[in-house]
């Protein structure tokens, strides 16, 4: 299985049971995860994102058969373009992970458009994390609303060459928005924050069976949460295989293509 949503390092507000890489890696392996796309919690608040990404790349290299680093890019920082370039050229990353709500920009911001263009040129998957936690449980001085997805479909329709995956979008996407996004060829979702009984089958029905990907959001959520959701929904073997592996492989393939290829 391929897990498209894990984090390394430490969540700023709580120690998590598996927030040491070796422990997380052991857990992922035991759960049958063969590849995990890893961002860094440090990418949320640190300003020296270049160092965050170097540490992330080093940490993933220690478990190179399992962990793929997805570097943090903060569009509010000077020369974020340099970080994008280093993610690809210095660290050989397959993707980057954005936290627009923690970095203070909307998805209709011109910088986000520029980022998408640059990511397409570097053949990087762009992950946009819609939220890190429930609004209701946030630290009173650090209340960060989920990313506003209002203009997302328009923005992505203008950049069909870049593959974009929303992480933790469960409580923020309406069936109407999902239908809009399903019309685009380059949008993908995980189901770490998808709730409700049978939520994964419901999501695939509302969105697209070929573009739903396993994401556990470990170690913030236990790996078991998303895996048990696969059992809770009535999925045949074929769909289960798509959600847990094939769709992620397809996303990797599409993102890695050279323009015009």
């Amino acid at each position: 299985m391929i897990d498209t949503n894990v984090y390394l390092s430490h969540w700023p507000f709580r120690r998590l049971p598996l927030d040491e890489t070796d422990a997380l890696v052991a857990k992922l392996r035991a759960a049958g995860i063969a590849q995990a796309w890893a961002g860094s919690f440090d990418g949320l608040l640190h300003k020296d994102v270049t160092a965050v990404n170097a540490r992330l790349a080093d940490e993933c290299a220690r478990h190179a058969d399992l962990l793929l680093p997805f570097g943090a890019i903060n569009l509010a920082l000077p020369d974020w373009q340099g970080d994008v370039r280093r993610c690809r050229e210095s660290h050989g990353m397959h993707g980057i992970r954005l936290h627009p709500n923690y970095h203070g920009y909307r998805l209709d911001d011109p910088r986000f458009g520029e980022l998408l263009t640059l990511a397409g040129q570097h053949r990087l998957i762009v992950q946009v994390v819609v939220r890190m936690e429930d609004d209701r449980t946030q630290h009173p001085l650090v209340r960060v609303p989920g990313v506003d997805l209002t203009n997302l479909a328009n923005v992505l329709a203008a950049q069909p060459q870049v593959q974009v995956q929303l992480l933790n979008s469960g409580r923020d996407v309406t069936p109407t928005l999902l239908r809009e996004l399903a019309e685009l060829p380059n949008v993908w979702l995980d189901f770490a924050m998808t709730e409700g009984v049978g939520g994964v089958a419901q999501l695939a029905g509302d969105f697209h069976m070929d573009r739903v990907l396993l994401g556990t959001y470990a170690p913030f959520f236990p790996v078991e949460s998303s895996l048990l959701k696969l059992d809770e929904s009535e999925l045949g073997h074929t769909l289960r295989d798509r959600f847990t592996r094939k769709n992620a492989e397809q996303l990797t393939r599409l993102a890695g293509k050279k323009p015009g290829q």
Binding site: P17, T194, E195, G196, V197, G198, G199, F221, P222, V223, E224, S225, L227, L228, K229, D231, E232
Partner: peptide, 15 residues
């Protein structure tokens, strides 16, 4: 449940 997934909630204990 059903507003929540049985799975996500059970995972709290199983894990």
């Amino acid at each position: 449940a059903p507003g929540r997934s049985f799975a996500s909630q059970l995972a709290k204990v199983n894990s």
